[in-house]
Structure formats: structure tokens, C-alpha cells
Simulated assay, not measured.
Amino acid sequence: MHIARYALDECVHYGIIENDGSIARLQSSPLEGLKRGGAIDAPSAVRLLAPIERPRVFGLGYNYVAHSNEVGKAVPQLPVLFMKPSTSVIGPDESIVYPDDGQNIHFEGELTVVIGKKARHVSAANALNHVLGYTCGNDVSDRVLQRRESEFGCLLAGKGYDTFAPMGPVVATGLDPSKLGIITRVNGAVRQNGTTADLLFSVPEIIAYLSRYMTLLPGDMIMTGTPAGVGPIQVGDTIEVEIEGIGILRNDVVAEDRGNASRL
């Protein structure tokens, strides 16, 4: 099942995408249930949004051995965690803003877990019962700032710019997160071609680990790490993250306009 969050006639709705592409509108957020409301919306009439509104976003670093090797990092002995602000989240076809002082901004295609049920002290064996589904994510990162922060044992600003967490296009339910193909393209050229079978810490292990220390809430999103092949993006580029069973998350890259930002 594919669940979409979308805008239509200046209102935001959730719906289930049917086999013919039409969208069966839900009565409420899928975090509250999947009861249909009766309305059917045409895909041509809607604009897809980020699957969850202003979520808490957890990220994992170095969760693929090949990626650790390509950046010269030791393989971690426990999950390397960080968070991205809710204001970093954008949806499909929204623009990644390249900071005007940015020097080396990278893409990172990632499987992203959407928590559907409160989780605290859950076991790995029971962890997937707390998952609503999965979506595509792009952990956009400022490498220069990230490196400076990491020297002091922290990681926030380099991952946390507005627009640095594209998510979407839908939440897919019923997938096996242990064997999904991930492809990232820049301007149509394949840059990453990996599989979640290579995750160092599996999705159930990640959820169990996080829930040992904090309560996971419905709507939380967990970016599970990126395969090898990360690289720079430039203004004018189009980034696509495609994950088996979910779809394609597409975003272009635009230059920052501080004049407009100052008026918000």
C-alpha cells in the first residue's frame, strides 16, 4: 500500500493510492488509522507533500561498511546517531536550497523508516510492529561544516539546513526493509546503487537501540544511512532517490536567496 500526503484546493489530505493512480482520501492521518473517507482524488489535481508534517528526524552515520571505507572512517561498533530539524524536511519536487556560503554539499540517498506506533524498550524481534512504513530520503550534508563539527564530537548544523531532508514521494507499507534496492541519480546518471541487505545495523536493531534510550513517537522518521557513492551537488542539478517498492523522490537544487528568506 502507498500512502500519500497531498495538497488539494488549499487543503492538506492523506490518501491511499489505488492501482489506477487515483487517491482514496482518508478520514484522518494514517497515524490515526486507515479509514477511508469516501472521496476519490485525481492524481493530476494534487501536489504531493512530505509524507509526515514536521517530523522528528533521526539519522545514522556510517551504517554501510562500503560508505565508511570510502570516507576513511572506522566501522562503528554502535549506531552513530544525529538529528535533523523538522524544518529541514521538504517533499517531492520541492527545491533543495544550496547555501550561499556552501562549499561542498553532498547527496545521500537513504531508506527512511516512518514510526507508526509509540515505541519504548522494544526488542528487535518486535520492532517492525511499530513501523507504519517506509519512504525515500536524501540526507543532504554540508561536508565542510560537518567535518568541523565532527572534530568536537557533534553533528547538527552541517546536516540541519532548511531543505536538507527531502522525503517522499509516499509511505509504502508491507515492505521487507532488509533487502530493498537503493539508487541515487544526479541529472540522470547513477551515483549510488546499493541494497539495504548491506546495512550494518538493521532496521529492527536501529529501532530497538533508539527505543532503549528514548520514546519513539508516531510520525518519527529514521534515516537509516547511505550506501557508497555519495558526492557533490551543484545549483541546477536534479537529484533522484529511487527505492524498490516505494518510488522516486525527485528534487532540484537552487541557489539560496537571502533576500526572500529575510522577508519570511
Rank of each mutant, 00 (worst) to 15 (best):
D257I: 08
G174R: 11
F201Q: 04
E151N: 07
I206H: 03
I248T: 15
A165S: 15
A124E: 15
G259K: 08
R191V: 05
T215C: 05
G194W: 05
S211G: 11
N251G: 10
M223S: 14
G21R: 04
S95F: 09
D41V: 04
D41G: 00
I206A: 03
G137I: 04
L200K: 13
L156D: 10
A125H: 09
A189R: 13
F164Y: 13
V80F: 11
V190K: 12
V203S: 07
I96E: 02
L132D: 11
Y62A: 14
P232G: 13
D162T: 11
A189G: 02
G72T: 04
G153P: 07
Y161A: 12
L200Q: 13
P43W: 07
T173S: 05
I96T: 02
D101P: 00
G168C: 12
G219T: 09
V235T: 15
G91H: 04
L48E: 04
G15I: 07
T135Q: 10
P55Q: 10
T238M: 10
L264D: 06
L111D: 08
L34C: 06
I183E: 14
A4T: 07
K73C: 07
V80L: 14
E240K: 06
G188L: 12
P55I: 10
L49G: 05
I222L: 13
S86M: 05
Y98G: 01
A261H: 04
F58K: 03
R36C: 02
I233A: 10
K179P: 01
S123T: 15
M223Y: 09
V75N: 11
T87P: 05
L180H: 10
S262N: 11
P85H: 03
N129V: 01
Y209M: 03
Y161G: 03
S28F: 03
F107L: 05
V241Y: 06
F107R: 02
E18V: 03
G168N: 09
A172W: 03
A127R: 07
N129I: 00
D162Q: 11
L264K: 06
E151F: 00
A124I: 02
E94V: 00
I207Y: 05
H121A: 13
I17H: 01
P51K: 03
G259E: 13
G38C: 10
I206Q: 09
V254Q: 03
S29P: 09
A172S: 15
V46A: 00
L156M: 12
V170Y: 15
P177Q: 08
G137N: 05
I16W: 02
M221V: 15
T87R: 10
I3T: 04
A124W: 02
I243W: 02
L216G: 06
